[in-house]
């Protein structure tokens, strides 16, 4: 095998390993008043945020966000809500977990979040590619409503 071929293979492997070790996160910021802003800077995949709505239910901020899979292949994503009070301090930091969401090709799905307590006035939604998107274990969550 020629040395240049070996160099090429090693470079390709390097790229694969770098890709496998990194996780990009897309952010959506919003509050109980006004529209949410989407930070596509670190967008991991072709995901479109179609709509974001929020309202107070029994004093708790409830957020509804519509996502669309921009590609024709199924995709597993993870999302997580963070909540902030009127001073911008995070509420119950670390109490929320990443939630998997399975999107069929071009499918539109809604994700919902409820603030942990009434002090939350704004939110941030983080979306990232699932670590196991191409691994042997896949998640499929059936919607309940």
């Amino acid at each position: 095998m020629k040395r240049t071929t070996i160099v090429f293979i090693l470079t390709a492997l390097t790229v694969v390993f770098i890709g496998g070790c990194s996780t990009a996160v897309m952010d959506i910021d919003g509050s109980s008043q006004g529209a949410a802003t989407v930070n596509y800077k670190n967008s991991p995949v072709d995901i479109k945020v179609l709509d974001t709505k929020s309202k107070f239910v029994n004093g708790l901020l409830k957020v509804n966000m519509q996502l669309e899979n921009g590609i024709s292949n199924p995709y597993t994503l993870e999302y997580k809500f963070s909540w902030f009070d009127s001073d911008g301090m995070e509420v119950d930091e670390g109490s929320t977990a990443w939630m998997p969401i399975y999107l069929n090709g071009r499918e539109t799905r809604t994700i919902q979040g409820l603030a942990p307590n009434p002090s939350a006035k704004s939110f941030k939604i983080k979306i990232r590619e699932a670590d196991d998107s191409d691994s042997v274990i896949k998640w499929r969550l059936k919607p309940l409503f």
């Binding site: 990443w98 939630m99 998997p100 670590d131």
Partner: peptide
């Protein structure tokens, strides 16, 4: 990450 959603097996897990 204690809140990781990565499945380890089909057994009931933290996520």
């Amino acid at each position: 990450d204690a809140g990781s959603a990565t499945p380890v097996s089909t057994d009931f897990g933290s996520s």
